[in-house]
């Protein structure tokens, strides 16, 4: 895959690195960082800034017996080195898919040429994570965003007023953007979408569709 051309806003990466994103958006960013070296490095640097802030922090005296209590809590137990070695971020999404491939999901019809698979993302803070599949030529009616939405292109391609989007690309949109993505190419376009609040549709069709699409 060529390098992604569309990236999250730096602000979003800064929120991710600080652990401030809701779960759904955190999964999308982690999945993008897997295929985007540039963003992985940005996240890495942001984490290093978190470390730099800690190294510079003004110390606050710990309670007198804090060290003893801490040592007691460890039970002198050290985890083996491989204990935490888990497969990496697509991993985050894999856990949601329960080991199934995208093709094997129980896709629900929402509109002609549009299917979706909704996943619970309730670990912390509200957010919804879903995969949406558009046949070429299909898309989402014009809409804007009340909350913040992150879309990661998993397969295929779509275009909207902002440009063309392909596998690995992220659309990091907020209420300032209105868009109408349409899938193109030979294969269906599959997007991983995280939303932290309902979308707001601008057309009558969209309003009718909204209850079905649940976007």
């Amino acid at each position: 895959m060529s390098n992604p051309q569309h990236h999250p806003r730096y602000e979003t990466l800064a929120d991710f690195a600080a652990g401030r994103l809701d779960e759904a958006r955190a999964v999308v960013i982690a999945a993008h960082a897997e295929v985007c070296e540039q963003c992985a490095r940005d996240i890495d640097a942001l984490e290093a800034i978190g470390g730099g802030v800690l190294a510079n922090a003004e110390p606050a005296a710990m309670s007198a017996d804090a060290l003893e209590k801490t040592l007691a809590m460890t039970g002198a137990q050290i985890m083996p080195a491989q204990a935490d070695e888990r497969p990496r971020p697509a991993s985050a999404l894999d856990a949601y898919l329960g080991g199934r491939s995208i093709d094997a999901l129980n896709w629900k019809w929402v509109a002609p040429g549009v299917h979706q698979h909704v996943m619970k993302a309730q670990g912390y803070r509200d957010g919804v994570l879903r995969l949406v599949k558009f046949a070429p030529g299909k898309g989402v009616p014009v809409h804007t965003h009340k909350g913040e939405e992150l879309t990661l292109l998993m397969r295929g391609a779509y275009r909207d007023a902002l440009g063309e989007w392909r596998a690995g690309d992220i659309a990091d949109l907020d209420h300032e953007h209105t868009h109408e993505p349409i899938a193109f190419g030979d294969e269906p376009c599959v997007c991983l979408i995280a939303t932290s609040a309902p979308l707001e549709f601008k057309t009558v069709l969209g309003k009718v569709l909204q209850p079905f699409v649940e976007l």
Partner: peptide, 29 residues
């Protein structure tokens, strides 16, 4: 909370990789 973090630092010490992050960055994470 600081104690809780330090308990994890102790327990996870083997997972720390000096080639990937400074101690401060790892403890931040």
């Amino acid at each position: 909370l600081a104690q809780e973090v330090m308990v994890k630092v102790f327990k996870k010490a083997k997972l720390y990789d000096v080639s990937k992050a400074s101690a401060a960055t790892w403890i931040f994470a």
